[in-house]
């Protein structure tokens, strides 16, 4: 049993390392080649963990080879459009200017149910609102609504932008732990933080969550021992 235990730990660490080397892309939406790699690695890992008759090297070599091939292949695809098309395919437009391309849908074996379901996932319930719909290489549907169905933007309403409007609120204190890099990113100093904490009569250790942005707007939640919310 110890053998299985140690083999599992080794394979687990190896796969974590491989996924880290492959990068975040691998963890999100899977491209066809990445999907194949994920299945292969999981199968090799399972077999080598279960079957102790197989040398561990027989699992390590294919896993590392697959990971390396994937990284190298994606590097090639990044450099060459042709390679990108061969490896991942092309996005396919199935609704163009509001017209459904039935031939393309048949080609992709994309049924009406698939289309309607993907539209609903995109928040569209009336197909007449769709201007363009594109099946991406990872199988997801991207929808560009017609003008009248698009969400209203600040630009459409000609609303004036406030200073630093594009900076999102970032976590500055998480469960009592201060994250000084957030203050740096927001261009705020320790003095500002000390002042805010003083105003709220709290120390960093007693803060459950605090976010702030570069316009000095903040949101503060104290730990549950003092459930009072302050802002």
């Amino acid at each position: 049993m110890y053998i299985v235990l140690f083999r599992t730990i080794i394979i687990y660490i190896l796969i974590i390392i491989c996924l880290r080397i492959m990068g975040k892309r691998q963890l999100g939406e899977l491209q066809p080649s990445e999907f194949v790699i994920a299945i292969l690695i999981s199968n090799i890992a399972t077999i080598s963990i279960e079957d102790t008759d197989i040398p561990l090297l027989s699992a390590i070599v294919p896993i590392v080879t697959l990971m390396s091939s994937e990284v190298l292949l994606s590097a090639v695809a990044m450099k060459s459009n042709k390679a990108q098309v061969v490896i991942s395919g092309n996005p396919v437009v199935i609704i163009r200017n509001g017209t459904i391309d039935q031939a393309r849908m048949r080609e992709l074996r994309f049924s009406i149910e698939d289309l309607m379901s993907q539209l609903r996932i995109n928040g569209i319930f009336d197909i007449r609102e769709v201007g363009w719909a594109i099946v991406e290489t990872n199988g997801k549907l991207t929808v560009y609504p017609k003008y009248y169905a698009r969400p209203v933007t600040a630009e459409m309403l000609a609303l004036p932008a406030k200073a630093n409007e594009n900076t999102p609120p970032l976590v500055v204190i998480s469960d009592g732990v201060l994250m000084p890099e957030t203050l740096e990113i927001c261009g705020l100093g320790q003095a500002w933080l000390d002042r805010v904490l003083k105003e709220n009569q709290v120390t960093p250790e007693k803060v459950f969550l605090m976010t702030c942005d570069s316009s000095e707007t903040y949101y503060l939640v104290k730990k549950e021992t003092d459930p009072k919310w302050e802002e």
Binding site: I21, V64, M67, S68, S69, V71, L72
Partner: peptide, 13 residues
Amino acid sequence: GRVALAAALLAVM
């Protein structure tokens, strides 16, 4: 760096 590491690992394999 990732690509170089992958190439190096492939060479090791």
